[in-house]
Design a protein around this nucleic acid. Structure first.
Length: 425
RNA sequence: GGAGAAUUCGCCUAGUGGCCUAUGGCGCCAGCUUGGAAAGUUGGUUGGGUGCAAGCCCUCGGGGGUUCGAAUCCCCCAUUCUCCGCCA
């Protein structure tokens, strides 16, 4: 939710942001007038309520004669108050609906436009040169017996898979390496619930235009989370967190579930786009004025992971129209996928400023003792998808895959994953 | 799934219709005291909304109701705990 004060003081700034996103500017005017209506209705209600409270207090000390008259007045007031209160509540409902539709105000410097209007910030690493025809991760997965897509589909349908043997171990190694790095950087590990209540899902901003991306269990009124960000953002909801010792940083591990509605026919091969995967996510609660610096730190930690995996990648500054509704700025790191001759997103880090925290009511105490809304940021540190880039970039002519040096300690020192021996399964 | 109990200001706790504008303790903050500290002592200590302000309104798990008036009475819901049943 945007800051109502900004709506009153500088609606033009919000309109400019909506414009950059290609979102509605009219929403801003609607919200502003709903805000004025609400404040008027609230003032009327509160005035009447004050009168009612004062009258009710007089009853106790009144003489028998006055009592009956006071009670009659009280009855009349009670009816008026009820009407006024209802009117105020309705005005607030209208305001909430309007203000919740407005997306986070993008930060200065964010490129305007849509999906293709991103800006490349830098490219790192060297793309591999093969003197043989490189295999894609599906072929490698089969050859090495580490990814079983056929049986995944047999059990659960398309976009499901088994990670097997070194594939399973590789994913766990990646997660553990990420967790170690995060712990060293001061993050607290959290294994999060993957089913959450509607208000948490709504609070994180995922129930807007991407609602059909989310698995929902009607029998229980619970949502399956597509990222542990949801649980991590909800973790401190309705709390006043203590930031006097610096930001609160969490590394959340969870399985993630995504319906991938609307992406039929896109990335159907392999495990690039799947319904279920694992992810280690960084999440920071921090004072708003430090949020942009923290965003750079999250990005640096992500790049550190990519470098440990010896992957060539580029960093892009996502355009306003391609930001999630909660994000004020987003950087993606995309790794090179040789067989696609393209960079594909491996990490994404968003600065949600105070937008998400305001919805979830997460505050902190400033030095002057007053409370204020915190800023929240999130960023990927490792996901199952990384296996695609690792397998493809480090493949060798015989189909074996060299394990990046930094990952070896997490794999019992193994240096190479060898093709499986010929057998019946 | 069945039965019962609980939920009050960071923590513990008092409170069975108006004097609750919520008690007391612990913790915390500030002052006094001290060479410094402890002890003692005095004061402060839930948050939110609205308003230029004074102020006013809301907040006793959440929502609704009864009443002139609700922490207190009634209804619904959530969460936690205990016992029984069932179970990967």
């Amino acid at each position: 939710m945007i800051d109502a004060n900004l709506l009153r003081d500088n609606p033009e700034a919000i309109k400019a942001s909506q414009r950059a996103r290609g979102a509605s500017e009219t929403l801003v005017d609607e919200a502003a007038s709903a805000d004025a209506n609400w404040r008027k209705a609230l003032a009327e209600f509160e005035t009447l309520r004050a009168e009612q409270n004062a009258k009710a207090k007089l009853v106790a000390g009144a003489t028998k004669d006055d009592r009956a008259a006071l009670i009659a007045e009280g009855q009349a007031l009670a009816a008026e108050v009820k009407v006024a209160e209802q009117r105020a509540n309705e005005a607030q409902t209208v305001l909430d609906a309007a203000i919740w539709k407005i997306e986070n105000v993008v930060l200065e410097g964010v490129p305007a436009g849509g999906e293709d209007d991103f800006v490349v910030i830098r490219e790192e690493g060297t793309k591999p040169v093969f003197n043989f025809e490189p295999r894609d991760h599906v072929a490698l997965g089969e050859l090495l017996d580490v990814i079983d897509i056929e049986r995944g589909a047999k059990i659960s349908g398309s976009r499901f898979y088994f990670l097997k043997g070194w594939g399973a171990r590789l994913e766990l190694a990646l997660m553990n390496m990420a967790l170690d790095q995060a712990a060293k950087a001061g993050f607290t590990a959290l294994i999060t619930p993957t089913l959450v209540k509607p208000e948490v899902m709504a609070g994180t901003g995922f129930l807007g235009q991407h609602a059909d991306e989310i698995y929902y269990l009607p029998g229980d009124d619970l949502y399956l989370t597509g990222t542990s960000e949801v649980a991590l953002a909800g973790y401190h909801s309705d709390e006043i967190v203590d930031l006097s010792d610096g930001p609160k940083r969490y590394a959340g591990w969870s399985t993630c579930y995504r319906r991938e509605a609307g992406s039929h026919g896109k990335d159907t091969r392999g495990i690039l786009r799947v319904h279920q995967f694992n992810k280690l996510e960084m999440f920071s609660y921090i004072a708003p004025e430090e949020a942009e610096a923290e965003h750079q730190r999250l990005l640096a930690w992500q790049e550190q992971m990519l470098q440990k995996c010896e992957l060539p990648y580029r960093v892009i500054d996502t355009a306003a129209g391609d930001l999630g509704s909660s994000a004020a700025r987003k950087f993606d790191a995309e790794a090179w996928v040789p067989t696609q001759d393209a960079y594909r997103e491996l990490t994404s880090t968003s600065n949600c400023t105070t937008f998400q925290a305001r919805r979830l009511n997460v505050r902190y105490r400033k030095e002057d003792g007053k409370t204020a809304t915190v800023a929240t940021l999130n960023g990927t540190l490792a996901t199952t998808r990384w296996l695609v880039a690792i397998l493809e970039n480090h493949q060798q002519e015989d189909g074996s895959v060299r394990i990046p040096v930094a990952l070896r300690p997490y794999l019992g020192g193994a240096e190479v994953i060898e093709p499986k021996k010929k057998s019946n399964n």
